[in-house]
Amino acid sequence: MELLKKIMMDKLAAISLSIVAVTIVVGIFAPLFAPHDPYEVHMELRYASPSWEYLLGNDHLGRCVLSRLIYGIRPSVLWVLAALALSVGIGAILGFIAGYFRGKTDAILMRICDVMLSFPGYVMTLALIGVLGVGFENILLAFILSKWAWFARVIRTAVMQYAESEYVKYAKAIGVSNMKIMVKHIVPVSFSDIVVVASSSFGAMILQISGFSFLGLGIQAPHAEWGMMLNEAREVMFSRPELMLAPGLTIIIVVMALNFVSDALQVALDPKLMSSQNKSYRNATTSAGKLQGKEVA
């Protein structure tokens, strides 16, 4: 709650957070919010412009664009979130093991990470899709398999710095079990690092996954997904460029909101950055820039 209060103090972050929250809620309860069936074809309404009945108009098969956008939240945002959570989860577990126990386990795990990270992200995903076949589940799987190494690396660094701290050494000395030290003393403090790392790559991940759907490697018709809607719009780009507008703007707004929330989270979770309001913003944006720079790699 404290955290929420801090974020809400920043107006931009508050707006962004509400955009993200609304998107997620609307996505979960898509059937309640969508005015029409997203798969219902009306050939007489092809390329119809916006009307009261169809607020954002109709696409090349006369389907309701607004309903398709709303249903598209599920694959474009919610499933991406699930994939992100899974790969962060794997990364966190391995990162904790490597950072806390060090020694041989650490060395082996980090060498595996080195190998995983020596395949460029896109190539790894393409290779896995090549092996598993085209499909949305396979893209998500490929993302989980190719991203965990990066998370493990970052989380390990965070954990290492706490594992060396005095109070952990003390806990060890008085014979607290390793499991208990991790749960009680390391997870709570490193949680903020994990949240920041995860949230800062959420936006980029949405863009990349929708890009694969755009290429036709991801979700297949007739399912609604934002990248695929843009691909469908591109085919009639020369005659009806306005069809690119709705899905394009939706992606931009959601990703921008996510990036702002991630920056705000970083400031709110790190008390050091809060000390001087003005400086904190600069630090937050620059470190986010660094994270993203690495993430692309």
Partner: peptide, 26 residues
């Protein structure tokens, strides 16, 4: 510059590509 860069990093590259081909080429 920072504002614009924030906007552009949130933009999918294929959308930008589509918009630019539509404007400059078509």
């Amino acid at each position: 510059v920072r504002g614009v860069s924030f906007f552009l990093t949130a933009m999918p590259s294929y959308l930008l590509a589509g918009l630019m081909t539509w404007y400059f080429s078509v």
